[in-house]
Each structure stands twice: as structure tokens, then as C-alpha cells.
């Protein structure tokens, strides 16, 4: 044997692939990690009458020691000690979870009907789902104020139908916030579920029927498991923005509506407490990471299904 064989002929190929993969990773690093680090560093600072309104400020490597010494976990301690924040997080998770479940309940039949509709109708149905996005989000939320306000559209309809004689008083309640969030994020739920359902081979349902499974049972044993990636993606796409939502609770919520997005806004803008609001944001990120990890695991488990 004169020339030793190349121990790994695929190596250069893999290197090339690795470089290709590195590009989006670098983007992620630049666009996500950098702002994250800035926020994280801010959360370790203290408020100060300064520009920008926190201390310490970066003054070069020469004073690195002083800089690091001035950072502390005080803001996190405050978050932990004041039950308001815990209450706000829990309330946000609760409202976001309720909204997500309701959105799923509304979106699944919608997506199902779309996926089962004649193929030539499907583009039109898709457009109909996306259509509301062509109007400003803010305007649509204001429209809900018009619908929910006392003597508003909803009251007029309900009273005309004789279902109630007093105003429902939905505006400025948690119910209105949930309604607003379900409405606003519904397309994010519908689209991935539709995409998953649409991909399901119809012969699978025929096979299930052929093997003796009644339609309702096939729905749970075949349709739902195969739509699971879409359902999970939809839930995340609704849950994650909902948990940090600010505008909807601000406009549709009442004084009882406690949401972390609003707390963050207040800390940042009204109280000018950038470090504390940064800490709120970092903790929020940690709260959000949990469902993401669950999704990752679900994906890995479902990998074999494709």
C-alpha cells in the first residue's frame, strides 16, 4: 500500500457545508445576541441621572475592573422581592395561555375547513385569513374598542336580539384583552396548522377508515398527530407575542389587567427605570425559553414523522 487512503473523503464537503451554515448563525449572533447582551448588561446596572439614564457606563478596558464592580443583581432581587412582578408574570402567562387555547379552538376548524376546501378556493381563503394584516394593527384594535364599548356594536346587536338588556361592559376587562389577542394572533395559528393539515395525504385517512377507524377516531389518531408540528408552531407563534403584549392590554384592558408587557412599558417609559425594565425583559425571555425548549423536543421527537 503506497498511498494511504483518504481517511475521510467527505471532510472538505462537510467543511463547505459548515461555512454555509455559519452565515445564518453569524446573523443570529449579530442581530439577536448583541442586543440581548446590551439588555443583559443594562439589567445589571443601576438607574442614574445620566445619559443614558443608568450607570456604570463603559469607559474603556482600562477601567474594566470598576465597570464590573458596579454591576450587580439588585434589579433581579427587586423583581424577586416584589410580588407585583411575579403576579404580573403569572397573569401574563395565564392570559397568554387562555388566548392561545382559544385561538387554537377557533383556528383548528378554520384551518381544517381551508385544507379540505376545493383546491381552487384555497388561495382565496388564505388571502382572506391574511387580509386583516393589510390594515394597521392599531386601527383594528381601536375597532374593537368601538365594538366592545358600552352601547357599542356588540351591545347594540345583543340587545337587539334580546339576549341582554344591560350593557355587557366587556371593554377594559381581561376578557376584552383575551378577545383582542385571539383576534390579532389568529392568523399565526391558522397558517401553520393549515400548512400541516394541507400536507396530510388523504389516503392516510382512507387507510384508517379502511382499517376500521371511524372518522372521529381517525381525526385523533391520524389528523391531529400529523398536524402536531403545525399546532405547536401556531401555539408558540401566539403564546410568545401574547405573553409580552403591551398594546392590546393597554387599549382593551382595564385597571385589573396586569400584564408584564405593560409593567415593562411603565418601568421603562413612565418610571424611566431602564435597568429594572431590562431585568423584567431578561426574565421574560427566560419564561419564553421554556415553551421553546418544549417545542424543540417535540420537533426532535416528531422528526421521524416526515
Amino acid at each position: 500500500m503506497t498511498t494511504p487512503p483518504d481517511p475521510d473523503p467527505g471532510r472538505s464537503l462537510r467543511l463547505g457545508r459548515r461555512i454555509v451554515l455559519a452565515v445564518p448563525f453569524l446573523w443570529l449572533l449579530a442581530l439577536f445576541l448583541t442586543p440581548f447582551l446590551i439588555v443583559a448588561r443594562m439589567s445589571l446596572s443601576d438607574t442614574a441621572r445620566a445619559l443614558p439614564p443608568y450607570a456604570p457606563h463603559w469607559e474603556g478596558f482600562g477601567r474594566l475592573g470598576e465597570f464590573l464592580a458596579a454591576l450587580d443583581l439588585e434589579n433581579y432581587a427587586l423583581l424577586a422581592s416584589d410580588t407585583l412582578y411575579l403576579a404580573a408574570y403569572l397573569s401574563s402567562v395565564r392570559l397568554a395561555a387562555i388566548s392561545t387555547i382559544l385561538a387554537l379552538v377557533v383556528a383548528f376548524p378554520l384551518a381544517y375547513a381551508m385544507a379540505r376546501a376545493p383546491r381552487r378556493w384555497q388561495p382565496a381563503l388564505l388571502v382572506a385569513v391574511i387580509l386583516p394584516f393589510w390594515t394597521s394593527f392599531l386601527i383594528r384594535i381601536y375597532a374593537w374598542i368601538g365594538i366592545l364599548r358600552p352601547e357599542g356594536f356588540l351591545d347594540v346587536v345583543v340587545q337587539a336580539l334580546g339576549l341582554a338588556d344591560a350593557p355587557l361592559g366587556l371593554l377594559n376587562t381581561d376578557a376584552a384583552v383575551v378577545l383582542g389577542m385571539v383576534y390579532s394572533y389568529l392568523p399565526f395559528m391558522v397558517l401553520p396548522i393549515y400548512a400541516a393539515l394541507e400536507r396530510i395525504d388523504r389516503s392516510l385517512l382512507e387507510a384508517a377508515a379502511d382499517l376500521g377507524s371511524p372518522p372521529w377516531k381517525s381525526f385523533w389518531t391520524v389528523t391531529v398527530p400529523l398536524a402536531a408540528p403545525g399546532i405547536v408552531a401556531g401555539c408558540l407563534l401566539v403564546f410568545i407575542p401574547a405573553i409580552g403584549e403591551f398594546v392590546i392590554p393597554d387599549l382593551l384592558g382595564g385597571p385589573d389587567t396586569l400584564m408584564i408587557g405593560k409593567v415593562l412599558w411603565t418601568e421603562f417609559f413612565s418610571n424611566r427605570d431602564w435597568p429594572l425594565s431590562s431585568a423584567v425583559a431578561i426574565v421574560l425571555l427566560a419564561v419564553l425559553l421554556l415553551p421553546l425548549l418544549v417545542f424543540q423536543r417535540a420537533l426532535r421527537r416528531g422528526e421521524g414523522a416526515r
Binding site: D201, S203, E206, A208, D210, L211, G212, P214, V222, L226
Partner: peptide, 20 residues
């Protein structure tokens, strides 16, 4: 009679195996 109550079984052209 709906398909799930018929004592026939079918082998599909695409096999239609449940991928999950």
C-alpha cells in the same frame, strides 16, 4: 356501509403508511 364497517382491507398504491 361506511368504509370502517366493511370487512375489506386495502393495500394502497401509495401504501398510505402512517408516518408517525
Amino acid at each position: 356501509t361506511p368504509p370502517h364497517r366493511r370487512p375489506t382491507n386495502m393495500m394502497f398504491q401509495s401504501y398510505a403508511l402512517f408516518p408517525h
